[in-house]
Each structure stands twice: as structure tokens, then as C-alpha cells.
Amino acid sequence: MNHHRKKMQRKIISILAASLPLSFLTGCSADEKNRNYTIPRSLCGIKVVSDELTAFLPPGEKIKVRKEIRSWITTCKVVVDDTLILTTTHEWLPKGRTTTYFASGQTLEDINFSAEGGRFRYSGNEGFGKTQKCVDEVRGQELYAALQASGSKHMDSDAMKHLIISYTKEVEKSPDCTETLQ
């Protein structure tokens, strides 16, 4: 009986070992899609680190990036295969507001993480930042930036932290900041 038991164990192990690579290969190829579009290096004129943005972009065939300007608000919408994946927003607010105030007007979610003393607020798929150099003294306003990947299935607060910090610093170098200051 002991010999029969060992023989059965060997047979089960060999069946499992043989089926493991097959299930691994079919699992990857059946469920995985590719990105057949180029990852943008900028979003409506604002430079982004492609590696930081990539995590929030899904597989797909086509990507479209379009800019919209409404009074004091500039948005940039990133659409992959007709699905809105990411929206950026630049908005001028009265001086003295906070990033928490700005975020509360943009999202219904709790934004639990912060960096640089609250200058940046972020979650797994949203980030909000206050520029330091974009101040319109005549109108008494300051510029804020938001990245909202509400159409993305990816949730990564650390990646969003890096993305919103680098993005906000690029907004400070952009015409959205400098043209209003002249």
C-alpha cells in the first residue's frame, strides 16, 4: 500500500508539473492586451515623465489628448479607445486657499495622503498640487493643478505622489503660469 501511495503521489505531481506551464502561458496570453499607442511626453503642453504616467494608462489601440479652456480653468482630457482615462486641471483660486480646499471642489473621494506640508494631496488615482511660483498679484490668485485618473483601474498612491509633484513643477514652467503673470 505504501508503494501504491508513492506511485499515486508521483503521478499527481507529474500531472501538476506538466499543466502548470500551460496554464501560466494561456493565462498571460488570453488576458493580456498591449498598448498600441505612444505614451504622451506631455499633456496639453505640460511635460510629464512617461514612466510615471504609464502606470495609469490602460492597454488600447488609440490615445487622444485634448485641451479645453473655460475662463480661469484649463483642462486636458486623455481618452484611450473612447474611454476617458485621465483629466488634468489647472485652476486659479483666490490667494490664501489650500490644496485641500482645491481638492474638495474637484473630487468626492477622501484624499488621505499629503506631501510637503500639505502642498500636495493625493490618493491611489488622484493628485492635487499648489504651485509656488504662479501668483497673479493683480487678481489676487494662485494656480493649482490636478491629475485625476478616474478612468484608470490602476491604484498606486506612491506613483500618484511622484506624478503630481513632477507635474505641478512643470505647470510652474508653463504658459499657464507665466502668461497670466505679465
Rank of each mutant, 00 (worst) to 15 (best):
M1R: 13
M1Y: 14
H4M: 08
H4Y: 14
H4Q: 13
K6H: 14
K7G: 10
M8K: 13
R10H: 10
P21H: 00
L22Y: 00
S23T: 15
F24P: 00
C28A: 11
S29Y: 14
A30N: 09
A30W: 08
E32L: 12
N34K: 15
N36S: 01
I39M: 01
R41P: 03
R41W: 06
C44E: 04
C44D: 03
I46M: 02
I46W: 01
K47G: 07
V48P: 03
V49N: 12
S50T: 08
S50A: 10
T54S: 12
T54W: 02
F56G: 03
F56V: 10
L57E: 06
E61S: 09
I63M: 07
K67W: 05
K67S: 04
E68H: 04
W72K: 08
V78R: 01
D81A: 04
D82M: 00
D82S: 05
T83E: 09
L86W: 04
T88N: 05
T89C: 01
E91P: 03
W92S: 03
W92G: 07
L93W: 08
R97S: 10
T98M: 06
Y101R: 15
Y101M: 14
A103L: 09
A103Q: 10
A103R: 12
G105N: 13
G105T: 11
E109W: 07
E109K: 11
D110Y: 07
D110C: 06
S114T: 15
S114Q: 14
E126H: 07
G127R: 06
G129T: 14
K130D: 04
V135G: 02
E137K: 08
V138R: 10
R139F: 02
Q141P: 02
L143E: 06
L143D: 00
Y144T: 06
Y144K: 01
A146E: 07
A146M: 09
L147V: 12
L147S: 03
Q148P: 02
G151Q: 08
K153A: 10
D156H: 05
A159R: 11
L163Q: 04
I164A: 06
I165C: 01
Y167Q: 04
T168V: 05
T168Y: 01
V171Q: 02
P175Q: 12
D176T: 08
T178I: 05
T178Q: 03
E179D: 11
L181W: 02
L181V: 11
